[in-house]
Design a binder for these strands. Structure first.
Lengths: 224, 224
DNA sequence: AGCGGGTCTTAGGCATGCCTAAGCCGGCTG
DNA sequence: CAGCCGGCTTAGGCATGCCTAAGACCCGCT
């Protein structure tokens, strides 16, 4: 099917962005309101209406006013291909070319639209068939299956919990840099010493040191 | 200047294609007729007129009806950046990801427009500052300087010459495959046993074997 | 039930990059 | 010297993807 979609498809990079965003907003399970998509992609609601109409004609989404937009099986396939490209690229840039985890998102966002299936394969093999990207997000397999993760946001952890950093949002480079500066990398083991109270920072004990984590950083960090 | 152009610029990938093509057609030294460019890019002459007008407004080309189009210093800079991206990508795909020399051109043509200067740098370093791409074309330095080559087309070699394959055109994958199948790789040493006569094949002696090279292949091969 | 407000869509426009068709222009040839 | 032919440009159109402004629609609240 990967080959079929690749042949049957002439998706533009804008279309791919919409599909990927829909996937990220959960449009496989639930209908996503256009306004949500517009905010996500930073375009006007009118543009979303336009594009959803086009994607519907292509059979990539279903769309009715009452509920919003949902991905079809085909649309989900294209979206997953983009997600796979994105995460694989992030992994490759970090592991093969020495990028830091806060540098890769933007680069991957551009490249994900223009790599071939061959290049995807070669990177995948060069990395030894990785399962996760540098932010701890799972890399979908070629068949589109995602290993499911059961992590929780650092924000909801209770004092006394001993956990490991399993995943971070890849969106905000500056926050990623800040987390690393605090000593938090993927896999870092630590104890939650103090929960957040009155929107104050969390306190962690990490390699013997005490670390204060502001709310905005805890929000993008996930543990298990 | 590399940084200046990168900032001052918002060149589209179409514009970059025109500039690169102009560079390839020698528009640094001589004026290139629009028809030549149209053929090269496989677009209509009218499209070329349109685009040249836009590029002229941006100060990237000069263009008058009498002579044709020439690159300005800035336009040459952008073109060279694309050439550098293209050749570096080709080198990277071959050396780091196991591509064959006939597989890289198309991939590089897409990627050259969307890699950052950072990625360019990292690939360059990962390869150990290479001077040539897998087809023997020189990789322009960041400052835009080209090591100049003095090779000759295999077609004009005389019987008895002992030479080394130094460069091949990267355009036609099937011809590249055929050359490799004949045992001709970059650096391969051989003797020209028989020149082409009446448009027949050349005959080479290569590692003790006698090899027939059709005209169409000899045309894209260069030696020194 | 009626109104208000937010959401979604329609209508009309703009920029990019391509096309075809038609006109212009200049140089070569009869 | 005139006419023709090929190359270049202009004019007008189309598709994509975005926008703003204005209308339609729905839901909840009074």
């Amino acid at each position: 099917m990967s080959k079929l979609t690749a042949l049957a498809r002439h998706t533009s990079s804008a279309q791919e962005d919409y599909l990927k965003a829909l996937y990220g907003l959960g449009a496989v399970q639930v209908a996503v309101p256009p306004s949500r998509l517009a905010r996500e992609l930073e375009v006007s609601p009118a543009s979303v209406t336009d594009m959803l109409a086009k994607l519907a004609v292509l059979g990539l989404v279903t769309h009715d006013r009452a509920h919003g937009a949902r991905l079809t099986a085909t649309g989900r396939g294209v979206a997953l291909e983009m997600v796979r490209h994105h995460r694989l690229l992030e992994a490759y840039l970090v592991q093969a070319l020495g990028y830091r985890w806060d540098e890769v998102h933007e680069e991957a966002d551009r490249l994900e639209h223009c790599i071939s299936e061959v290049l995807e394969q070669r990177m995948f093999q060069a990395l030894g068939a990785p399962s996760f990207d540098p932010h701890g997000d799972p890399i979908p397999s070629a068949r589109g299956l995602l290993p499911r993760e059961h992590d929780r946001c650092l924000l909801v952890c209770k004092a006394g919990e001993r956990v490991r950093l399993s995943r971070v949002s890849d969106r905000e480079p500056d926050k990623l840099r800040a987390l690393r500066d605090l000593g938090l990398e993927l896999g870092t083991f630590f104890e939650v010493v103090g929960e957040s109270r009155w929107e104050g920072p969390l306190e962690l004990r990490l390699k013997g040191r005490s670390v204060q984590v502001p709310l905005g950083l805890a929000r993008i960090a996930f543990v298990h």
